[in-house]
Design a protein around this nucleic acid. Structure first.
Lengths: 116, 116
DNA sequence: AAATAGTACCTTTCTTTGCAAGGTACTATT
DNA sequence: AATAGTACCTTGCAAAGAAAGGTACTATTT
């Protein structure tokens, strides 16, 4: 049993937003994996390669993302991702859902604060 | 492969807040499982028994929760849960973490909106 | 008294998924 | 030729949500 329950719960929170955040990032510019990792890091949302690559693949095969290969100035070629139409549609819904969720949590906080 | 990617991502978001929300609910009053399910439902956070019971057990064995048996006016006895000291400490940290996370997401939204 | 319905607890089984670790391959530099 | 840096991906493990099924207590109906 893992008894770092606190870190665990924090990780859970972060995970929940992962896909949403990645779609957000890709919605602006075409980016490749390292760009995404960098932006998530700047936003305090730590993610590693072993998480990101499979997730990008899943989103690709669900047709939310497309990519094209672009040669790098130095090193191997890169996969630059962008949102498909379906991806944009999806992101819009996740935006709404995120708003609803934060409101829900806010109401729970309000109804349960400072009674202990 | 499950290709309801949207529902999936929404579920992910909800899951991320689950433990936090449950601790919030228990922080106010002693409650038993059905109370928790009811409150989560009211907050649009659907959860089922098969999710809740194992989670409560985990929180118990991590010593964030304690319970006592209370006889029901009709039916089998109930486990009424309350937060331990450790549980309250934990909740405080999750509160902070939730604030930080929502700020992070907010900044991502700000930096990536309406450029498509 | 037996059967049924309602409530409350819990477990088994399956699937998804995050992540550490390891692997391949391309380019540039030493 | 060897090393370092970058970029892609996969393998294997563990955690955890959820559907379905199980046990047991009480109250009501037949």
């Amino acid at each position: 049993m893992n008894d770092n329950q606190l870190e665990n719960a924090k990780a859970q929170m972060r995970k929940g937003t992962l896909e949403y955040c990645i779609l957000l990032i890709i919605s602006k510019d075409e980016v490749y994996a390292s760009d995404i990792l960098k932006e998530l890091k700047q936003a305090n949302l730590l993610v590693v390669e072993g998480t990101l690559y499979p997730l990008l693949s899943r989103l690709k095969s669900s047709e939310l993302l497309s990519y094209n290969w672009v040669e790098s100035p130095s090193g191997p070629p890169r996969k630059y991702y962008s949102l498909t139409e379906k991806g944009r549609e999806n992101l819009k819904q996740l935006n709404e859902n995120w708003q609803v969720l934060t409101e829900s949590v806010k109401s729970l906080i309000k109804n349960h604060e400072k009674n202990n």
